[in-house]
């Protein structure tokens, strides 16, 4: 769970959206469809070789996107924190019985266990890397517009767009409130004082937001809000979209071949 701490410094990473990657030019709708297909394929894999192929495929995609390596590694903390937790249990005979390949003191490491742990680690990283490569290179408002084009309910898209916007505002407010509490010597531990402080912090965030929401709503109404959230982005398929689709379908074909032939 400490993973969020590392990520928390990068919520409004200027790289997100503002970053121009070769994949930024691709159609948002196509990228959503492709990333979902690719990730479903990876989720269905059982073979270690195919999972390795999928991981390599995702690395090709992230290379195409020219995502900075340092930032990529930072973004992979969360998923690998969960995987580290799984590695503490799955490889051993008490979790996965099978052929013993090594002993660590009283613990026996099984071949099946190591295989399973490697499989889920490869699959998880492959999916996350492909999400970064395809969706990370699409600004959030383009994703919203693209999902509306794909007949995702208007209300859901509207909530998404406004929530992204207000999350940025509120995160600043939260940091300010917390800084004020810290400055008064407040410690976030399990004392009754701290719990009350944390609850009041949650409460004031919610209450302030509620008041803010009323103001936002009035401001939106006065600007002619009718339930539609307008986003400026037009979608049309270009030759580079065909190239991207072909690359991913070829990779998917290779991975599928590895899974179901070998």
């Amino acid at each position: 769970m400490s993973s969020l701490k590392g990520a928390a410094s990068a919520p409004f990473d200027p790289i997100y959206g503002a970053f121009t990657s070769p994949l930024s030019k691709n159609d948002g709708r196509l990228k959503i469809i492709l990333v979902i297909l690719w990730a479903i394929l990876i989720s269905a894999l059982h073979g270690l070789i195919a999972a390795f192929g999928a991981f390599a495929g995702s690395l090709i995609l992230i290379t195409l996107s020219r995502w900075p390596l340092k930032n990529l590694i930072k973004r992979l903390y969360a998923v690998n924190f969960f995987m580290a937790f799984m590695w503490l249990m799955i490889p051993f005979s008490f979790s996965t019985p099978g052929e013993v390949i090594a002993r660590l003191g009283p613990l026996a490491v099984t071949l099946e266990g190591v295989k399973l742990a490697s499989l889920i680690t490869l699959k998880a990283n492959a999916i996350v890397i492909s999400i970064i490569a395809l969706l990370g290179t699409t600004p959030l408002h383009h994703l919203a517009a693209a999902s509306r084009e794909m007949h995702i309910p208007e209300k859901l898209v509207g909530v998404f767009l406004l929530a992204v916007r207000y999350f940025q505002v509120m995160h600043q407010e939260y940091l300010r409130l917390r800084r004020a509490m810290r400055a008064r010597g407040f410690k976030f531990n399990l004392s009754s004082n701290a719990l009350r402080g944390a609850a009041n912090l949650v409460g004031s965030l919610v209450v302030r937001s509620f008041d803010r929401a009323e103001r936002v709503h009035k401001a939106m109404l006065s600007r002619g809000y009718t339930g539609m959230v307008h986003v400026r982005s037009a979608f049309y398929l270009k030759p580079i979209d065909l190239v991207l689709a072909l690359i991913i379908l070829a990779l998917a074909g290779l991975v599928g071949g590895l899974e179901w032939r070998l």
Binding site: N189, A194, V202
Partner: peptide, 26 residues
Amino acid sequence: LNIDNLPKTAVMTAAFFTASFIRLQV
């Protein structure tokens, strides 16, 4: 959800999401 409570829902989503950043030492 309707036109009137959609902004409210969005702002509350952001608030709850922000509140989930509060961490306590255990």
